[in-house]
Design a protein around this nucleic acid. Structure first.
Lengths: 158, 158
DNA sequence: TTAATAACTTAAAGTACTTTAAGTCAACAT
DNA sequence: ATGTTGACTTAAAGTACTTTAAGTTATTAA
């Protein structure tokens, strides 16, 4: 567990992935297509070492990506971001929109969990020959599925 | 809007898309790779005409898709689904592994939310010139980051 | 009747990753 | 010192759609 030395040199790609929410493969991909700046390398191993700034940028990109923005649009956004200079406010806005997105993702994740659980209960009822329970859980799954498919959450008032 | 005649012949791909939540292109794609059964055609135009059953299956697939299940796994699921209740145990195993995946996803999502919130507080402190608060939130973010980095979920008991 | 518009059709190319295969390097146990 | 393990590396192939291009059929408007 001798991580103390490494901590000073920056994050590994695995750590950067966990912090940003982007898979390692995507971090490499984004760097390859030059959406992210080239990341410094550890002298001896040649492995990527992410600075705090690298990770912050990866988080910003993860946010844009999560909103469904195309790579070309992200490029444009990040370019103009570099030119403008009030980066604290820009950071906050980006992070807030990411927070909203995560809340929505959490909501959808919960629905997916409930759907899967209803489906499991459905098949367990089928196994134990409980036709009534099976029907109940089948209906429950359909109801959750409907909620999952519908555009989005009701809470939308100024 | 003379849809009355067409109603008897089934749904158009557009209607099937709205009912299932899957884009038209995806319905065609799923049919092309034989995840969905071949859909009957209108005699004169050659256009697809979806039956109620076709739509029900599309809905089921849309649900599985929404949980993040791979196409190959969906294929297995749908195959065993056709066999009926005697496949219950296979269904349950598939769904249980999906449930574990979602649980882990939920855990990571929660950590990411906390990380983002700490980062927002950090930049807000930076904006308002509150150096002390900035330092506190920076430390908080780092602490959550550490948790995000650390080996995944120890809580795994029957 | 003709012409435009809309709703489909297919095949092929494009997009955005993701996975795999093969290899390097560092650390740790034998 | 040697072998094994684990975390990384790249290039290339694979996945899951999505978009585009070109064409057909059906309706509707002039």
């Amino acid at each position: 567990m001798s991580t103390a030395v490494h901590r000073l040199e920056g994050y590994t790609i695995r750590e950067a992935a966990k912090l940003s929410g982007l898979p390692e493969s995507t971090l490499r991909y984004y760097e390859a297509i030059r959406l992210l700046d080239p990341v410094g390398r550890d002298a001896s191993s040649g492995h990527r070492r992410y600075t705090e700034d690298d990770v912050d940028l990866a988080i910003a990109v993860a946010c844009l990506n999560a909103t469904g923005m195309s790579i070309d649009d992200m490029r444009v956004y990040l370019e103009s971001r570099k030119l403008g200079d009030q980066s604290a406010q820009a950071q906050i806005e980006l992070l807030e929109s990411q927070r909203r997105r995560l809340a929505e993702e959490a909501h959808n994740l919960q629905l997916r969990q409930r759907y899967i659980e209803a489906k499991i209960a459905y098949w367990q009822a089928a196994l134990s020959g409980d036709g009534a329970q099976k029907a109940v859980m089948g209906e429950s799954a359909r109801s959750i599925a409907k909620e999952l498919r519908s555009p989005n959450v009701p809470a939308e008032n100024a």
